[in-house]
Amino acid sequence: MAVPIQQKSTGARALQAWFNPLKRSAGFLAFVLMRVTGIGLVIYLLLHMVVIGNLLRGPEGWDALVATMKSPAVLVLDVILIAGILIHMLNGIRVTIIGLGFGTSSHKGIFWTLMAVAALLLAYSGWLVFTK
């Protein structure tokens, strides 16, 4: 016999539709990554314009900024930025290929292959960022 146990409230579920990849397939993960990296890159471009605005403060202001940019914390942010660019760019290639009706039955394999390429390029880029 079924027995009622407890009751409690629930909230809105709208955001889950876009950003929750749990219980979803590789294609949905690709969708989430595309949106997260896309939003991240737009935010970066806005910040980049603000940072470049330091040129208006003359050589002293710019030199101080460059010194900050060479700190390990900012270099980590650089690597995160490169990760976002690689994921967005390579995922975009996947979207273009299958969006034109080619390789749809292999879309998961295409995704994981391109993400493996992204991981390799990211590792190489990270090495360059911290050693060169």
């Binding site: 979803r24 397939s25 294609g27 949905f28 690709a30 969708f31 595309m34 996947r94 979207v95 299958i98 969006g99 749809t104 879309h107």
Partner: peptide, 9 residues
Amino acid sequence: CHSAMECSA
């Protein structure tokens, strides 16, 4: 369609 392909899954 944004190619999430979850419908097929």
